[in-house]
Amino acid sequence: TETYKYDDKREAEKAAEEFRRRGITVTVEERNGTWVLESK
Rank of each mutant, 00 (worst) to 15 (best):
R20T: 05
N32G: 07
R31M: 09
S39D: 07
T1P: 11
T25S: 12
Y6T: 02
R21Y: 04
T1E: 10
S39W: 15
V26A: 04
N32A: 05
A15M: 10
K14D: 07
R20C: 10
A16M: 07
V36L: 06
A16Q: 06
G33W: 01
K9H: 07
R21T: 06
K9W: 10
R20M: 08
E2I: 15
R20V: 04
A16S: 03
R21D: 05
A16Y: 05
E18F: 07
E2A: 12
W35D: 02
V28D: 00
V26F: 07
Y6W: 04
T27L: 08
E17D: 10
I24M: 11
E29W: 09
K14P: 00
D7K: 14
T1D: 09
T3A: 09
V26P: 01
V26H: 02
R20G: 06
R22P: 01
L37F: 03
I24G: 04
W35V: 03
V36M: 04
E13I: 09
S39H: 13
F19K: 04
D8V: 06
G33H: 03
K40L: 12
I24L: 11
N32M: 04
A16W: 03
E11I: 06
E18S: 07
N32Q: 04
D8G: 05
I24W: 06
E13N: 05
K40W: 14
G33L: 02
K14S: 08
Y4F: 11
K5E: 13
T3V: 13
E38Y: 11
K5D: 05
E38W: 09
E29H: 12
N32R: 03
R31S: 07
R31K: 10
D7Q: 13
T3M: 12
A12I: 02
F19Q: 04
L37S: 01
D8P: 00
E2G: 11
A12W: 01
Y6H: 02
R31A: 05
T1A: 09
E38S: 11
T34P: 00
T27R: 08
F19V: 04
G33I: 00
E38M: 13
T1H: 12
D7G: 11
E17T: 05
D7T: 15
E29M: 10
K5T: 14
Y4A: 06
A16T: 02
V26E: 00
E30M: 10
V26S: 01
I24N: 06
L37H: 01
E13V: 06
R21M: 08
A15R: 05
T27F: 11
W35S: 02
T3F: 12
K14T: 08
E18R: 09
E13Y: 11
T34S: 15
D7R: 13
G33P: 02
E18A: 10
D8I: 04
K40V: 13
E38H: 09
A16V: 06
R31G: 03
R10I: 13
G33K: 02
D7W: 09
V36Y: 15
Y6A: 01
E29G: 05
R22G: 04
T34N: 13
K9L: 11
T3H: 11
D8R: 03
T3S: 10
E18W: 12
K14A: 12
R31Q: 09
I24H: 08
E38I: 15
L37G: 01
A12S: 01
T25N: 13
E11R: 05
K14Q: 10
Y4N: 07
A16D: 00
W35Y: 08
R20Q: 07
A15T: 04
D8W: 03
T3R: 12
T27N: 07
N32K: 05
I24C: 14
E2M: 14
E38A: 09
G23T: 01
T27S: 09
R20E: 06
K14H: 08
R22I: 08
V26C: 12
E2F: 14
E29Y: 14
E38D: 07
E18N: 08
F19D: 01
A15K: 08
V36Q: 04
D8Y: 04
F19L: 13
T3E: 09
T34G: 14
L37D: 01
Y6D: 00
K9A: 07
Y6N: 01
A15F: 04
E18Q: 08
W35G: 01
E17M: 08
V26D: 00
A15G: 03
V28C: 06
V36W: 13
G23K: 02
I24S: 04
A16G: 03
K9G: 03
T25G: 06
K40N: 10
R10D: 14
Y4D: 04
D8A: 05
D7A: 14
K40D: 10
E29F: 13
W35P: 02
W35N: 02
E30G: 04
G33D: 04
T1Y: 14
Y6V: 01
R22F: 05
E29D: 06
K14F: 08
R21L: 09
G33Q: 02
L37V: 15
S39Y: 15
E17P: 00
E11V: 06
G23F: 03
F19T: 02
K9N: 03
E13R: 03
D7P: 10
Y4M: 12
V28L: 12
Y4T: 08
E2D: 10
E17R: 07
S39V: 15
E29P: 00
L37P: 01
L37E: 01
E2R: 14
V26W: 01
T27G: 03
V26K: 02
L37I: 14
K40Q: 12
T3G: 10
R31L: 09
K9Q: 09
F19R: 03
E13L: 11
K14Y: 07
A16P: 00
T34F: 15
E30Q: 09
R21F: 05
E11M: 09
A12M: 04
